[in-house]
Design a protein around this nucleic acid. Structure first.
Lengths: 184, 184
DNA sequence: CCACATTCTAGTACCTAGTCCTAAATTAGT
DNA sequence: ACTAATTTAGGACTAGGTACTAGAATGTGG
């Protein structure tokens, strides 16, 4: 006997999770059943065909790249007054948290604040020289982090930008960034 | 006249870059040429068919998830003495840099240092309370960043971890992290 | 042991988004 | 006007499927 239907199906779920690139033919051979059986299983389990699986993976990763790369800012900038102030919003998704406890990894909050501090300065090449930051309280999955940045010191090529990130009215992160206009 | 072959082809490259999900049929309509022309173009330019493109994207994102998630550390930890010291290596790839100037975005260096500082502490739930960091010099595409972390102060649930990141013998990043064991 | 249900297998027609190939038609350059 | 480059058309074939029908094998209850 080859395995009951239920066992096969739960094994199937695992297989596709571990390796989404498997074709029906390959798993059929693995389970020693016909290709049609695998297809019926996929129907019942609501698992899409390989091409669709890959497409969804590609979509997800593409969306990430797109939201990161064009503006090169983490979080969505909702208002920006160059050389003065700005606000960005980052909703903590599953990608941002530790699996075990659903707490956001610090560097995402840092990245949000840092890229906002850099975006605020009106120049082609802006880099961070130094920063002092505090993670006031842990942020968890689903929370919407709103970062407010403002320039507090302005010199020809050096800026001090203060960033405060809140969830609702709750302060979660504070940072002071020393950024500079670099000569390209 | 519809556009010269060269213009069409360079537009094609851009289109596929902007949206890898396009089928030949769709771009053919966009360029107002036949599907075969697009296929010849793809051949000449060495652009694979859509399904292959998506597959490669899926592969890349799959690999990333696999290499990032298990340890939840950015960079590869090459040595680790719990509660004492550790070293991790991060090679700056195209994903880490600003497109314009090939300079690594600060938060990747921060992420490497931060996750090493957290990994070093022997406890289930470790979070960063605060940090003071300095980006000593910009890091560019292809450079291999080696972060050395050591615990310089140890209290029951609070640690100060100093991190220095170098490219060869060149200091590029310095950070002092205040991390703590949290009660889960 | 029979009957009936569940489960599995086989096979056909069809789909998309292609490849590979041949051949004809069109356009451009000189 | 002639040749060469470019474009288009079409046919045969492919992978990895969907959707559907029908039959075979394997249970399981009575």
């Amino acid at each position: 006997m080859r395995l009951s239907k239920k066992k096969r199906q739960s094994q199937l779920i695992e297989s596709f999770q571990k390796n989404p690139f498997l074709t029906d033919e390959e798993v059929a051979r693995q389970c020693d059943v016909s290709i049609q059986t695998i297809r019926l299983d996929r129907m019942e389990l609501g698992i899409p065909e390989m091409r669709e699986r890959l497409k969804h993976m590609a979509e997800r990763s593409f969306d990430e790249v797109r939201s990161l790369s064009p503006e090169e800012v983490i979080g969505e900038v909702v208002s920006l007054e160059l050389d003065h102030s700005g606000v960005s919003v980052l909703e903590i998704s599953a990608d941002h948290v530790f699996e075990r406890n659903q707490i956001a990894r610090g560097h995402y909050l840092f990245a949000q604040a840092n890229s906002l501090a850099v975006a605020i300065v009106n120049a082609d090449l802006v880099l961070t020289r130094s920063a002092a930051i505090r993670f006031v309280r842990p942020v968890t999955l689903g929370e919407k982090c709103v970062a407010h940045a403002k320039v507090v010191q302005k010199q020809p090529s050096r800026f001090q930008v203060d960033v405060e990130t809140k969830v609702l009215d709750d302060m979660v992160f504070q940072g002071v960034f020393d950024v500079y206009r670099a000569t390209n």
